[in-house]
Structure formats: C-alpha cells, structure tokens
C-alpha cells in the first residue's frame, strides 16, 4: 500500500522560505496571493496493513522521525 505524509510548519511559526517565495511572486505582479507556506510531502510505499494499524504505525514514525512536532504538524493520507 501507499501513503503520503505532509509535514508543514505549525501556524504561528515563521516560514522564511514561504515568505521569500511570496515576495518573489508579489514582485512579479501576482498580488492576489495572501500568504504562502512551504512544507514537504513524503511518499511512502509499505506492506499492506489493516487501515487502523497502518495509521497507528505511520503516526508513530511521524512522531519519531518524519516531523518535529515542536515546530511542525503532519497529516497522513493512505491511498
């Protein structure tokens, strides 16, 4: 089975990359954009597991390695 983990900075945490990209687009005239925040997508291929177990295991690895919950949030999408 496949899963996708999205890791984003927690709201309120300054995202200098997002700010730089936003600034670049604003300078290019795309002034309809209000805010940009950049995160990562982690694509995972894994053994087939019952959905609940997969969710629990993926949550565990997010907390253990994939995200730093001091500054990041994560969401898990099982395909």
């Amino acid at each position: 089975m496949k899963a996708k983990v999205h890791v984003t900075l927690r709201s309120g945490v300054l995202d200098p990359q997002g700010k730089a990209v936003h600034g670049s687009l604003s300078r290019a005239g795309y002034d309809f954009i209000k805010d940009i925040r950049i995160g990562k997508e982690i694509a995972i291929e894994m053994d087939d597991l019952p959905r609940e177990e997969a969710e629990a295991k993926l949550t565990e690895i997010c907390e253990k390695l994939l995200a730093n919950t001091v500054m990041e949030n994560f969401t898990i999408e099982i395909e």
């Binding site: 945490v13 200098p16 990359q17 730089a20 730093n68 001091v70 500054m71």
Partner: peptide, 17 residues
C-alpha cells in the same frame, strides 16, 4: 540534542535563508 529531546525547542532555517 533538541531533536533527541534533551533540550527544549528546535532550530529552524535562518530568517534570511
């Protein structure tokens, strides 16, 4: 050490990248 939980907080990208 922050990642390992021995110290509080986290280190992020520098403000000016």
């Amino acid at each position: 050490l922050t990642e390992a939980g021995l110290l509080p907080g986290a280190l992020m990208k520098n403000r000016d990248l």
